[in-house]
């Protein structure tokens, strides 16, 4: 961004040098914990306590990984089922909810638009409630459904919190879908469900995938819900399993770090494969992109 047209290209390059410098500093700050997590996972039991955290291991070893891998396969499997299924269901239901409010808000009936605004405000407020404060009634609900310590119970509990989040996000993405396309589909006698799945969602696909990734990372990282709603080690999810390595009498730091690396691999892989949609979804909003 040159400040003066045609003049002083040097000012331009100094500006970008500072910009890149700032970006790099932020990136380094962000990467330090990741770096620490990776190198300390390769340290032996003695080395991890005797060398500073940021100093790489002199004789790297895979023993921490070997020690934790078998204990972690079950939690990773559990987390995959709960997070992936939960996120898909939350994003689909959230999209349906968002479309419901979109339809209401574009209705010619004034009462419906008011209802839409009110309902949407309630949902938006709901997403601000810290889920820890509702955990006791939620646990009671899951127990009464006979779903404590089951996948169904965990997914249900996740849905309670992440369907509104997905609805909120999807309604932002639906707002940029051209209104005329929806109207055309209505004139063409398409049912509301068909308009959503054949017209609106395909147009908001990058947004749908962004929402899915966001919800997936949230559910994958959620610690409190699986801590309370699982009772047997077999049903543990990854965040709870990682926490189990931090004992009351002592912590095996190298194994904790190895577990943390393994636990973050799945969301990382998903992000790598779907990340460009995440960016595209965000760009669609920024540019106010039409068709």
């Amino acid at each position: 961004m040159t400040k003066k047209q045609g003049g002083r290209p040097r000012a331009h390059s100094i500006g970008s040098v500072f910009k890149y410098l700032a970006i790099n500093i932020v990136a380094v700050l962000w990467l330090i914990p990741v770096y620490a997590m990776i190198i300390n996972g390769f340290k032996g039991d003695l080395a991890v306590t005797s060398t500073p955290v940021l100093v790489p291991p002199t004789s790297p070893t895979l023993s921490p990984y070997q020690a934790v891998i078998s204990a972690l396969t079950r939690p990773i499997f559990n987390s995959l089922i709960v997070a992936v299924l939960g996120s898909i269901i939350a994003t689909v239901l959230g999209s349906m909810g968002a479309y419901f409010f979109y339809s209401l808000s574009t209705s010619w009936r004034k009462t419906l638009t008011v209802l839409s605004d009110a309902g949407f405000a309630v949902i938006a407020m709901g997403t601000f409630i810290p889920y820890q404060s509702t955990i006791i009634p939620l646990t009671k609900l899951i127990v009464s459904l006979n779903a404590l310590d089951t996948y169904v119970g965990l997914i249900l509990a996740m849905l309670v919190f992440y369907v509104p989040t997905a609805a909120l996000l999807m309604s932002i993405f639906f707002a940029v879908v051209p209104k005329s396309v929806v109207e055309a589909a209505r004139i063409d006698s398409a049912s509301e469900l068909k308009i959503l799945f054949r017209v609106v969602l395909p147009l908001a696909l990058p947004g749908f995938i962004s929402t899915f990734i966001f919800v997936l990372i949230q559910t994958w990282n959620n610690f409190f819900i699986p801590l309370v709603l699982t009772t047997t080690p077999n049903m543990r999810l990854v965040p709870v399993a990682i926490q189990a390595y931090t004992g009351g009498y002592g912590t095996l730091y190298n194994e904790s770090f190895a577990v943390a690396v393994l636990g973050s691999l799945v969301p990382l892989v998903i992000f790598v494969f779907l990340g460009r949609y995440f960016i595209r979804g965000l760009m669609a909003l920024g540019a106010g992109k039409g068709v």
């Binding site: 051209p178 396309v181 109207e183 055309a184 209505r186 054949r198 395909p202 147009l203 039409g290």
Partner: peptide, 24 residues
């Protein structure tokens, strides 16, 4: 009030932006 909704009016409409379904 809309007594007969658009889909029951037997109308065909061409929009200014054409409003084609881009995914089809």
């Amino acid at each position: 009030a809309i007594v007969v909704p658009p889909q029951e009016r037997n109308i065909g409409m061409v929009f200014q932006t054409w409003a084609l379904y881009p995914n089809m």
